[in-house]
Design a protein around this nucleic acid. Structure first.
Lengths: 246, 246
DNA sequence: CGAGGTGTTGAAAGTGCTCAAATGGCGTGG
DNA sequence: CCACGCCATTTGAGCACTTTCAACACCTCG
């Protein structure tokens, strides 16, 4: 239970490496983040270190330079319910500005992580004064909403092996459909939690996928010969089909 | 499969009855909607009539004056996956402006319904030119995101009777905690679908609730003597507790 | 080598779903 | 007013899927 305030600013490169990168998936466009470069600082978090806790006052929001961050809720019976796992270039904590400047969930570094921290005050100013920023926020929030809707749908109509298959499909490069080799982005226990299933269920789902779709998995290495077979199995009942737009 | 365009403008009261009402739950504030009054028209839909289909070009978004609207996705195997049931004062279809002016889901009147229809072009103009509108949109979208997060959490950690209990709790007046009498807002089959369970499961869940929490249900009338008992049962494992803020 | 973390497997229990059938309310035509 | 049919709801039985609990394999690190 380290206090948030106790973390030390190790580095102050500021905008230095904010410039080189492309469109963000479900988050604020990087060009917008760049506008905050002057107000931003860099902060390092060790694996397992907490970033902020739910209901804490939110003075900052965060941009992930590198590493892995887990967003979660603490449940009444002591468990935690994972909201999302975020990686490179994702933004989080910004939603606090619509929540009375209070964080809506807790966050923690899952690996050693390098974050850009930006005062929420700056974001609020920009939203109010710069229509482009407000629009970017709207657009990014809309995308997230859509992804959440998809997640809800999947929780309802897909079974565990299908959800795992769907997760793998999302990792595949968009332009290939044969002989794909990918690596799981984080350990299986965490993937299981992200997919809202138990590690045992995840493991058994992998076995099912092996049998049904002929994929090969060894450690974190995944080989998919025929992506069609995997998407037929995973997405046969969904409202969207592979390849996904986001 | 009636065409959307075939519906007739029955009435043109315009802004007439837009003024009297209070804050909206998870939607655009009514004061913002009022700004569009001059561009709005009123349109009636019969029970069962489709309002728009997924992927259709979106020229309008909608405000519910009265009635009941179902938002849903068509799944690959012909079923439909319900996204939400909306009532009086809810806004829908506006998300299309962030989706290439294409509706993201389908909608249908569940009862006879009176809608205010407003061109999306007007909304887009306002968002770009009026920071207040953009801010209102952001705030409302943020609330919806939060509700979706809660729904995802509930799908994962609550069982069917708990989800039903939670649904009932949301219907209760916020200021009473004894001898509450409420009415189910729509028929049980639809509630079941909204809670993402089968009608059979819903029915059995009601029975469980009767036994465990001493509530009485007859037809659509629900009597709750002790709300504490119901919320202990339903929300014991969630990250939020009754009374809910939204 | 031993400890701890991660991942896998087996067996049993729990939960929701499917299918089938019964019940009950309600409006229509007689 | 009554019989009929339709629809919503309930109930029962069996099944499919996920979790739980327990045990074990594997790997890395000291």
């Amino acid at each position: 239970m380290t206090s948030i305030r106790s973390k030390i600013f190790v580095n102050n490169t500021k905008a230095a490496d904010l410039s080189k990168s492309n469109q963000l998936l479900h988050s604020i466009p990087e060009e917008i983040i760049n506008m905050f470069a002057n107000s931003a600082n860099i902060k390092f978090y060790q694996k397992g270190q907490s970033i902020y806790f739910e209901e804490e006052d939110a003075e900052f929001f965060y941009f992930i330079k590198s590493g892995l961050v887990k967003l979660f809720h603490q449940t009444m019976d002591g468990d935690e319910s994972i909201i999302d796992i975020l990686t490179h270039k994702h933004v989080f904590g910004e939603d606090a500005i619509f929540n009375n400047d209070t964080y809506e969930n807790s966050s923690e570094a899952v690996e050693d992580t390098e974050l850009l921290i930006i005062p929420t005050s700056v974001l609020k100013e920009q939203i109010n004064s710069n229509p482009k920023v407000a629009l970017a926020m709207l657009s990014s929030m809309s995308k997230r909403r859509k992804m959440q809707e998809r997640e809800i749908e999947h929780l309802t109509i897909q079974n565990a092996p299908q959800r795992v298959g769907c997760f793998l499909l999302r990792l595949c490069p968009k332009n290939k459909d044969k002989n794909i080799v990918i690596n799981l982005p984080y350990d299986k226990t965490l993937i299981a939690a992200r997919l809202r299933m138990k590690p045992e269920t995840f493991s058994r789902s992998i076995n099912t996928l092996r049998q049904v779709t002929k994929i090969r998995i060894r450690g974190s290495r995944v080989e998919i010969d025929n992506i069609q077979q995997l998407s037929d199995f995973s997405c046969g009942t969904c409202s969207s089909t592979y390849p996904y737009k986001d």
